[in-house]
Amino acid sequence: MSVETRRNFGTVRLPAGFNGLLPALVLIVLFFVIPVLALLLRSVTEPEPGLQNYAALLGDGTYARVFFNTFLVASVVTIVTVLVAFPVAWMLAIMPSALASIVFGVIILSMWTNLLTRTYAWMVLLQRTGVINRTLIAAGVIDQPLPLINNLTGVTIGMVYIMLPFMILPLVGTLRAIDPMTLRAAALCGASPFQAFRRILLPLSLPGIAAGGLMVFVMSLGYFVTPALLGGTSNMMLAEMIAQMIQSLLNWGLGSAAAFILLVVTMALYALQLRLVGARRMSGGI
């Protein structure tokens, strides 16, 4: 027995089937984990060792405004996305497949189209002299152009546009998993369409809404491109501030501290989402 044990002593034995993971792990550890950790290290060592970067970020009103804006934009975008996505997902879940595939086609086209292309289109559409303002003026709805860009409105429109597919597609799955018979039973029990929606359909789709909504929220928190192009200077978001600190101000200490805060918040919410989705799996996909 002891001879047997000793024979393997000192040799590294990888568990069965593990080898395939090695290239991926090397890549991720070397070019993801280490660079990110190195960045975090910078946040407590530059310009000198200590937590002064975090103190500066959390103590200063200007930065607090950026944090507030980031949460505000992410919240507004999430709420609007959920409200817009739910009816669409609902119809997609039950409409004839020929019709549904047209709508899915539109969603995929929009999702796969280059992010900058889409954002560029919104810049052109929303600007002061853009199509939307001109059309509204021509129709006599307004006589002064509406400020649609470089503010919360612009960011919200552009971000909702990008997030919609990420909300619609998983929600369709959730809704398709609900047995239509359940809703028929509710109707026969005397529930009006509104009551059936409030008491049955909505609660049964809530796990999907929560998981999708959280994902949209997390993605919105760290979004860079769209807020930078469609948002205004007065409502800058965290990602843009981080980029500025590094690119324009070359303040690596402050920039990496802000990045670390973004990372922690994101990861915490992501863990929460995993728990939501995991809990859903355990309860049998309901």
């Binding site: 047995d179 018979m181 039973a185 026969l188 005397g190 529930a191 059936a196 609660p203 049964l204």
Partner: peptide, 19 residues
């Protein structure tokens, strides 16, 4: 409409409200 017919029904598949 169904919800005003005041009829009871038991289905082949279990259609209890799972939540």
């Amino acid at each position: 409409p169904s919800h005003k017919r005041n009829i009871g029904m038991v289905f082949q598949r279990y259609t209890l409200f799972p939540h």
